[in-house]
């Protein structure tokens, strides 16, 4: 099941906090996070990677879609 976190319009560290709150309860799976900037892509991705998730991202219509998997 894919869960989507919409963190658009929020500044750091809010996207990281929202992502980690979801990761904490999920043993594995696929999570999509929507953010506005590359800084947020980096912070969300690195903080998830630290917890054993893999992270990828693509740019779509001036926003970024991060895909986290474990």
């Amino acid at each position: 099941m894919t869960k989507t976190i919409d963190a658009r319009g929020l500044s750091c560290p809010q996207p990281v906090i929202m992502t980690r709150d979801v990761i904490k309860d999920a043993k594995g799976g696929r999570i999509t996070v929507l953010v506005d900037t590359m800084t947020q892509v980096y912070n969300v991705s690195r903080s998830a990677e630290k917890l054993g998730w893999t992270a990828g991202h693509e740019e779509k219509d001036d926003q970024f879609v991060i895909t986290l998997e474990k």
């Binding site: 500044s11 750091c12 560290p13 990281v16 980690r20 800084t39 912070n43 903080s47 630290k50």
Partner: peptide, 11 residues
């Protein structure tokens, strides 16, 4: 450790 960095860190 919880990665609570502000946006200014990356900038």
């Amino acid at each position: 450790e919880q990665w609570l960095f502000p946006g200014g860190t990356a900038d």
